Amino acid sequence: MTHEDFEDVIDALDDVLEAEREALLIGNLDEVGRLLERKESLIDQLSQLELASREPLEALNSKVERNQALLDHALEGIRSVARRLAALRRVRSSLETYDEKGARHTIDVTPESNVEKRA
């Protein structure tokens, strides 16, 4: 493999990392998933090439770390939404009250749905 091959893979990986960053910033997680396959392929190619210089790899590493931080924040946001939706489901299905001693009581509230079919 030549030095040009190394540079081509570095440039392609840099482009993928920038596209991944943009997708993370706008919340396009589908695009992040699509880019993952390309990124893995380029990393495999890079591991098979001879190391021409450490500098491009260090720059890529900082971009990988930046994107990982963005991805961690996106995942935390998703988890937060999931927790909030679970809390809303609990509110719809039960009512929590407290007695004069501070003990919690849960009252299940299940909507009765009757479907009547008429001809």
Rank of each mutant, 00 (worst) to 15 (best):
L42M: 03
R118H: 04
R21H: 09
R83Q: 14
V32M: 11
E55A: 15
L95N: 06
L51I: 12
R104A: 15
E37M: 06
A119S: 15
R92K: 14
A103I: 15
Q45N: 08
A69E: 08
A52L: 07
Y98L: 09
E55Y: 13
L95V: 07
Q48D: 10
Y98A: 15
S80W: 11
E116Q: 13
R89T: 11
V109Q: 07
A12C: 04
E50C: 02
R79F: 07
L70I: 02
L75M: 15
T97G: 09
E96G: 05
A87C: 06
A69K: 14
V91P: 05
F6T: 00
L88V: 08
L51S: 04
R66F: 09
T106L: 15
E37N: 06
A69V: 14
V91T: 11
F6W: 01
L70K: 01
E65G: 01
S80T: 15
I10Q: 01
I107E: 05
R34W: 04
G77S: 03
E4M: 12
V91S: 12
A59E: 13
Q48K: 09
S94V: 07
N61F: 11
K63H: 03
H73Y: 05
E50G: 01
E76F: 09
D72T: 03
V9W: 01
Q45L: 04
D8P: 01
D99E: 02
A119C: 10
R79I: 06
A103N: 11
E4K: 13
L71A: 10
S80F: 12
V32L: 11
R54G: 12
A23K: 07
K63L: 08
N67H: 01
S113K: 15
L70H: 00
L95C: 06
I107D: 02
N114A: 10
E58G: 09
A12N: 11
Q68T: 12
K101D: 03
K39F: 00
P56E: 03
N28T: 05
L17Y: 03
I43G: 02
A12H: 06
K39Y: 02
D72S: 07
R104V: 13
N61Y: 08
E40W: 05
A119I: 14
S113G: 05
L25Q: 07
R38D: 08
R79V: 04
V9D: 01
